[in-house]
């Protein structure tokens, strides 16, 4: 969420969001979406279904209320608040009244630190899940996501086809997801 494309200033991007411009929304999804999803995933402690639902709601609210803005800090703060309130509403819809009361009671003790705490927990779990992966799979994911190599470059380095790299990446992601969810469930 901290990055924006330098080619398109924030003012133009936010004006495009307000207009409903497909290109602006694709850029917003590409540049800001992962960080919003990460925030939501941390806040939901790995409940990716709920995080995805909240992400969708966040986008819809941004579509309704977006205005041209040239302050990155202000825009990011607003987006984070929108994501948090969207998640709260999604939770409220999912829970029955009594479940909500129990949840509120449980949340009282950790109310303020919940967001940052959740993100920290997610980060720790992701690190642990990556470390526990097979070294080949971990190297592949690190090359793709942390070193920023594209699939074609990785394929040339490994001497295999891009399609094979895609297949390996898909398997590695599935394994990492499984381990991450196990770790997050263990933290509950």
């Amino acid at each position: 969420m901290e990055q924006t494309s330098p080619a398109a200033p924030l003012l133009a991007l936010t004006a495009g969001l307000a207009r409903g411009d497909d290109a602006a929304w694709a850029q917003f999804h590409r540049n800001y979406g992962p960080a919003i999803f990460r925030q939501l995933l941390g806040a939901t402690r790995g409940d990716h279904d709920l995080a995805s639902e909240a992400l969708q709601q966040t986008y819809l609210r941004i579509a309704k209320h977006a205005r041209p803005c040239d302050s990155e800090g202000m825009f990011m703060g607003w987006v984070r608040v929108v994501a948090r309130t969207a998640l709260s509403d999604c939770r409220r819809r999912r829970l029955t009244f009594w479940q909500l009361l129990n949840r509120r009671r449980a949340e009282c003790s950790e109310a303020d630190s919940a967001g940052d705490d959740g993100e920290q927990r997610l980060q720790t779990a992701l690190d642990a899940a990556l470390v526990s992966l097979d070294p080949g799979e971990r190297a592949l994911l690190e090359a793709k996501y942390f070193s920023g190599f594209d699939v074609r470059t990785i394929a040339e380095t490994l001497g295999i086809s891009p399609k094979a790299v895609e297949s390996r990446l898909t398997r590695a992601r599935a394994e990492l997801r499984r381990r991450l969810l196990t770790l997050l469930a263990g933290h509950e």
Partner: peptide, 9 residues
């Protein structure tokens, strides 16, 4: 990390 998490799910 966010991109990796996003594409995990």
């Amino acid at each position: 990390d966010a991109k990796l998490l996003a594409e995990l799910f």
